Amino acid sequence: EEEKYTVIYPYTARDQDEMNLERGAVVEVIQKNLEGWWKIRYQGKEGWAPASYLKKNSG
């Protein structure tokens, strides 16, 4: 089951394993960790993003 989330704040990656996020983008969360960083898939790429910048899509 894919978990789709919408980006609610833009984010600029500060590290090579982080993802740039555009507000309104829909991403797939593939791994959650306890530090508040989630691994996401977006446009065929995978990387880490701050969970607080993502909002779960309803339905």
Rank of each mutant, 00 (worst) to 15 (best):
K55M: 02
L34P: 15
G24A: 03
W37P: 15
Y5M: 03
V29C: 10
G47C: 11
K4W: 09
E1A: 06
Y53V: 14
N20M: 12
Y53G: 11
A49K: 00
T12A: 13
G36Q: 15
S58F: 06
D15P: 05
V27I: 07
P10V: 02
N57A: 08
M19N: 03
V29H: 00
D17M: 15
I30R: 06
Y42H: 11
A13M: 03
N33D: 13
E22H: 07
D17S: 14
E3C: 02
Y42R: 05
E28W: 04
Q43F: 06
T12K: 09
W37F: 15
E28P: 01
R41E: 01
G24R: 01
Q43H: 10
N20D: 12
K32L: 02
K56N: 08
A25D: 12
Y42N: 09
Q16L: 09
S58C: 13
V29L: 08
R41V: 05
P50K: 11
E1V: 05
E35G: 11
E28L: 06
N57S: 12
G44Y: 05
L21H: 01
E35N: 14
E3T: 11
Q16Y: 05
G44I: 00
D15I: 07
K55N: 06
E46Y: 07
P50T: 01
W37V: 15
E3G: 05
S52A: 10
Q16E: 07
L34V: 13
Q16M: 09
E3S: 08
Y42G: 05
Q43T: 05
V27E: 00
P10K: 15
Y42T: 07
A25P: 00
T6Q: 12
E3N: 14
A25R: 04
V29M: 01
W48I: 12
G59F: 05
N57D: 13
R41P: 00
K55H: 04
G59S: 11
N57T: 10
A49N: 00
K4Q: 06
E35A: 13
N20Y: 07
I40R: 00
W38G: 02
V7S: 02
G59V: 10
E28Q: 11
G36I: 05
A51E: 13
V27D: 00
S58G: 12
S58I: 08
L54V: 05
G24L: 02
E22L: 04
V26P: 03
Q43R: 12
M19Q: 05
G24S: 03
G47R: 03
W38V: 03
E28D: 13
E1C: 05
L34D: 15
T12W: 14
I30P: 01
W38C: 03
K45R: 11
W48G: 02
K32N: 05
T12P: 06
